[in-house]
């Protein structure tokens, strides 16, 4: 009888442990926000630039996108890749991409391939009829990728970039 109870207790403990092992997983949550700068006059008549949430815009505005991510799971997330196409009707603003503990890559082929900005080239036919490599300009970037090696359980981070509304 006593042996049976011990066996059942051990079995239950083993099942629970197995369940706990099976449940351990990373879970990345995302939030993205957009802001823009406005100039206003304060009570002293001084012009002050304020950054506010952007729900509307006009051509020429600079929009600042911020991506907040967090790992709400109970295990580290590895090889985290944030992919963000540059929105239609906007153009990427040079040197605006940033990110914590991340490698930032760019694409000029709609997100098929990503490279570091310094390695991002495209080919044109030169004056001699031969293909020539040209350095891609920031306006040509149409997708951004942040690579984060690991986001620990409960950890969070941010990245972002800005665009000009065409």
């Amino acid at each position: 009888m006593m042996m049976s109870m011990i066996r059942n207790t051990l079995l239950a403990f083993g099942l629970t442990a197995a369940s706990m092992i099976a449940m351990a997983a990373p879970q990345i949550s995302l939030q993205i926000s957009a802001e823009k700068d406005v100039v206003e006059v304060d009570e002293n008549g001084q012009q002050v630039t304020r950054r506010i949430a952007a729900t509307d815009t006009v051509p020429g505005d600079v929009l600042f996108y911020t991506i907040n991510y967090s790992n709400t799971g109970d295990e580290a997330a590895r090889n985290v890749r944030l992919d963000n196409p540059v929105p239609e009707a906007t153009s990427y603003q040079a040197n605006s991409a940033w990110g914590e503990n991340s490698e930032i890559l760019f694409s000029i082929d709609g997100g098929k391939t990503f490279k570091k900005a310094s390695n991002l080239t495209y080919q044109v036919t030169g004056t001699n009829g031969q293909p020539e490599d040209r350095q891609a300009s920031p306006e040509q970037y149409n997708a951004i990728r942040w690579i984060i090696e690991e986001v620990g359980a409960g950890a969070q981070g941010s990245s972002g970039f800005s665009v000009v509304v065409q």
Binding site: P26, I28, A34, E75, N79, D83, N84, P85, V151
Partner: peptide
């Protein structure tokens, strides 16, 4: 103007996890 970000990642055993947007 719609901006969409997608995250792809793996667990510790390098198993791909569902993408989030």
């Amino acid at each position: 103007i719609t901006n969409t970000v997608t995250v792809n990642y793996s667990d510790a055993a390098d198993n791909a996890q569902p993408a989030e947007t």
